[in-house]
């Protein structure tokens, strides 16, 4: 489900690439500090992007300074310092990873992540206390998705809507920004669908649930998927972003588009 939202790195300027990396490292470091080092393996670029967006609209923005990290002990590298956006993203990343692992274990009785699950579970308990309202909403949407998947729902809009609402909650950090909410919804909807397309063949082979029945269904949904992406951009254009704009531009206009094209082409071949 994760890892789809990313920058198209080939088109990033080197200075922007450094900032991107700095946020990623900063997030990793925060996650280790707040939730335990083991949870750092659950990190994906999606949350780095979210941190870049949320920090980009904050008043002050975090400080990026050279530092060391445990995983790369020899070389000093630019790392984004502690800030509310990174803290929030670190917690949310761990919570979602945990729920995803739990889902996998429940669905197939197995997950590669079983050995590390207790660490995530421990952190998740802490997060549920810190962000009780947010976590409750996320869990509600996840439960709804599970229900659709169990019922074998073949209307892609229904589970995609739930995942969209989940991402809307994640993006809208303080539940006060309608633009972030709309952007999150559209990104979430896109992630769910692109993930379903990406996994289609694998799911068919293994007899697992996929909201699409045939390749024809996928083709028929592409027009509205492109519309979906245009809505991400439409919301983003209304976002009052103060920094990191070049990076987020890249994610919205190149990263997402390129990912979509790659996955569609792979499906066709």
């Amino acid at each position: 489900m994760f890892g789809y939202v990313n920058a198209f790195q080939d088109e990033l300027k080197i200075k922007d690439y450094k900032v991107f990396k700095a946020y990623y490292c900063g997030l990793c470091k925060q996650q280790g500090k707040l939730c335990g080092s083991v949870t750092r393996f659950g990190l994906t670029y999606d949350f780095a992007v979210l941190a870049i967006i949320l920090d980009g609209i904050s008043e002050t923005g975090c400080e990026i300074a050279p530092g060391r990290c445990m995983l790369h002990p020899l070389q000093k590298r630019a790392i984004a310092g502690e800030c509310s956006a990174l803290t929030y993203c670190a917690y949310m990343s761990v919570a979602l990873s945990y729920y995803k692992m739990k889902d996998d274990v429940r669905d197939s009785g197995f997950s590669k992540a079983i050995p590390v699950m207790p660490f995530f579970g421990h952190a998740a308990k802490k997060i549920e206390k810190l962000y009780s309202e947010k976590v409750a909403k996320i869990k509600k949407h996840l439960a709804n998705i599970t229900k659709f998947e169990k019922d074998g729902c073949k209307n892609i809009d229904l589970p995609a809507y739930e995942f969209g609402r989940l991402m809307a909650e994640l993006f809208d950090m303080n539940s006060d920004n309608i633009v972030l909410n709309q952007m999150g919804y559209n990104i979430g909807r896109w992630i769910y669908i692109i993930d379903a397309i990406d996994d289609f063949e694998k799911d068919v082979k293994k007899g697992r649930y996929n909201p699409f029945e045939t390749k024809e269904d996928i083709k028929n949904s592409l027009n509205s998927l492109w519309y979906n992406m245009s809505e991400i951009a439409a919301a983003y254009e209304l976002l009052d972003i103060k920094r990191n704009k070049d990076i987020v531009d890249n994610v919205i206009y190149l990263g997402i588009k390129n990912k979509t094209n790659t996955i569609i082409e792979r499906m066709d071949s």
Binding site: N155, I156, D157, L158, A160, Y161, G164, Y185, N186, R189, S221, N223, S224, L225, Y227, N228, E231
Partner: peptide
């Protein structure tokens, strides 16, 4: 308006 783009289409 609900965000169900595929249905809308």
């Amino acid at each position: 308006r609900r965000g169900l783009y595929n249905d809308a289409y």
